[in-house]
């Protein structure tokens, strides 16, 4: 990477104090996203993907909080800003798209009201100008007859159109960073591809960095430049999409990619049938590598020590298999599997 990244997350830890103990839904997560780049974030439900996104945009619900680590936006730290300063970044410099377009829009306000208020807050325009901008924003996301539709209420749009409105809202102030948390999960299969393509095109045009959280490997393969795989709050593998999807290094990524029917709507249930068991609860994360109880290639080191991110091709993977010291163990550990 030649230029400095738009978003840079370093050793991010999110903690939620509860009565039964302190949970760590995000644990030492690091990644960068460059301008115009799309980072796909994948992993089973509960892996901490949304929580990472919330941490970046500063919207973790109390009592959860960023316990340590840094979030930098174009070099400047944003994880320790005062609420009023953070508010000026939200929507203006970091836009966010949520999963369910039905629920993301206030049902009692027209889409125009919601666009105009966003534009007014961030760009300080007068009402008439804000309205013009709002219509332009709707046109840009492909809403036909935008000048008429702007006075419609959210329920008067179809799901796909509504998600276009949400994208228009997220991009209204031309943010340099966009977080899209499962932007197509709630949509009809037929419009999913369009929405992803739209999001990708608009961000490309603006040179915005994108963090794309999704369960859909098809979307990842088509859209992402790099992929981060999360498991139990940690990034277990991160690298170029070709490598992570095509030739994953971490056994968890192997399971995740291997079992994904890329077009199926309900991928979640099928996805991990190659990996028995379920992701651990946050209160009982196994020692060592959190994945070792489910790992078909685990060996004795795995339950003692958590692996750091190790180089593997042009990716990084948190797996002892990628450590040169353990190369000989790999052979013996995989042998019985191979015979079976």
């Amino acid at each position: 990477m030649t230029q400095s990244p738009v978003l840079s997350v370093t050793d991010l830890v999110v903690e939620i104090p509860t009565r039964r103990g302190v949970l760590r839904p995000v644990d030492s997560v690091s990644f960068d996203i460059a301008a115009g780049e799309v980072l796909g974030v994948v992993g089973e439900s509960g892996a901490g993907k949304s929580m990472t996104g919330s941490a970046v945009i500063g919207l973790i619900d109390p009592p959860g909080r960023i316990a340590s680590g840094e979030v930098r936006l174009n070099g400047a730290r944003i994880d320790n800003l005062r609420p009023s300063e953070m508010r000026r970044i939200r929507g203006k410099r970091i836009g966010m798209v949520f999963q369910d377009p039905m629920a993301s829009l206030n049902p009692l306000l027209t889409v125009g009201d919601q666009l105009e208020e966003t534009i007014q807050v961030h760009l300080g325009l007068r009402r008439a100008e804000a309205r013009k901008r709002a219509i332009a924003a709707l046109e840009e996301v492909g809403i036909p007859a935008a000048d008429r539709r702007i006075d419609s209420y959210p329920h008067e749009f179809s799901g796909g159109m509504r998600q276009r409105v949400v994208i228009a809202l997220a991009l209204a102030a031309e943010p340099e960073m966009v977080i899209a948390d499962e932007p197509t999960t709630a949509l009809d299969v037929s419009v999913q591809a369009q929405i992803v393509a739209l999001l990708r095109r608009l961000c490309r045009e603006r040179g915005a960095a994108v963090m794309l959280i999704t369960h859909d490997m098809g979307v990842i393969a088509e859209t992402a430049d790099r992929v981060a795989v999360m498991y139990a709050g940690r990034v277990v593998e991160i690298g170029p999409v070709r490598e992570v999807v095509g030739a994953p290094s971490h056994p968890y990524s192997v399971g995740l990619m291997g079992a994904t029917p890329s077009t199926s709507g309900d991928a979640a249930s099928e996805r991990l049938k190659q990996i028995p068991g379920a992701m651990p609860r946050l209160l009982s994360i196994p020692s060592g590598c959190a994945f070792h109880p489910r790992c078909p290639r685990a060996f004795d080191t795995c339950d003692r020590e958590a692996p750091p991110l190790l180089r593997s091709g042009s990716s990084l993977a948190a797996c002892w298999l990628c450590s040169p010291d353990h190369q000989h163990l790999v052979q013996s550990a995989t042998l019985p599997e191979a015979i079976e």
């Binding site: 929507g91 993301s104 829009l105 807050v121």
Partner: peptide, 15 residues
Amino acid sequence: DYIRFARARGLSERA
């Protein structure tokens, strides 16, 4: 969600 989204759009607490 739409309250969360309103916050994510940078609206003030009052708004």
